[in-house]
Design a protein around this nucleic acid. Structure first.
Lengths: 130, 130
DNA sequence: CGGAATCCGCCGCGATACTG
DNA sequence: CAGTATCGCGGCGGATTCCG
């Protein structure tokens, strides 16, 4: 995670960088946006077409669907295949790396579901004490 | 993950929402910002003070450190303790929930480190084909 | 020391209109 | 059907200044 230890004895506290060489930032910055995770999980159910995704990922605009899919493709998480029929059919599916990314992501999702109520209560408590 | 299946036979494709009731968004939206993950991992090494964190999380401004710590505190991931000495000492540390969150997060970090080069190559390939 | 307040540029994201 | 192009707002986040 681009953290440097001082090589000192006794577990010196690490230093953290937030640059383009930081692996965690490279991943979190991509999936941390508004739609990436939902699209990735939608594609877990199998390959899907543009407009089908658009209706399954509720509330997303064409613009953001296109853009997010392009980004995910560029990262290597999603494959795009054009079938030159009439009308055109375009299918998106997870790559091997995409399927692999979903595993640790699913751990996080499970955690989120388990602690959703705790977080809501914590927020209310925080906001409540004026 | 706030996904509704149609209750149909044969693994109908799920629908995904991005609203305030979506647990994954509640977590990813917080974690996905520019500094949260780095701060959380910095606190894994043990409780730490404001200015120490500021120097360990390289490049962060006071404003963002304060704001991110407040957010993490509100979510219930971080505890803030003020020691009324002179000068004042303030320590931040992970709560039980914060420590728990770091576990799935660490899975993601490991994944990110493992695939960092694959991602960089994928980007270059994508950008290369004009 | 550990902040809070203010100002401001950038850009993520949505809405809308047009295209092959 | 699956996009691209353009416009515009809101908010994230950096720089700076002031405070108990």
């Amino acid at each position: 995670m681009v953290a440097k230890s001082k090589g000192q004895a006794k577990a010196e506290k690490r230093v953290f960088y937030n640059d383009e060489e930081c692996p965690i930032r490279n991943v979190v910055a991509q999936i941390g946006d508004k739609w990436s995770v939902l699209i990735l999980f939608a594609l877990v159910d199998g390959p899907d077409r543009f407009n089908s995704l658009k209706s399954r990922v509720v509330g997303i605009s064409q613009r953001m669907l296109t853009q997010t899919l392009r980004d995910l493709e560029r990262e290597g998480y999603v494959d795009r295949t054009v079938y030159p029929e009439v009308p055109v059919r375009v299918e998106y599916e997870l790559t091997a790396m995409g399927k692999d990314l979903v595993k640790p992501l699913y751990q996080l999702v499970s955690w989120a579901e388990t602690h959703h109520d705790d977080i809501k209560r914590s927020r209310e408590a925080y906001d409540g004490r004026s």
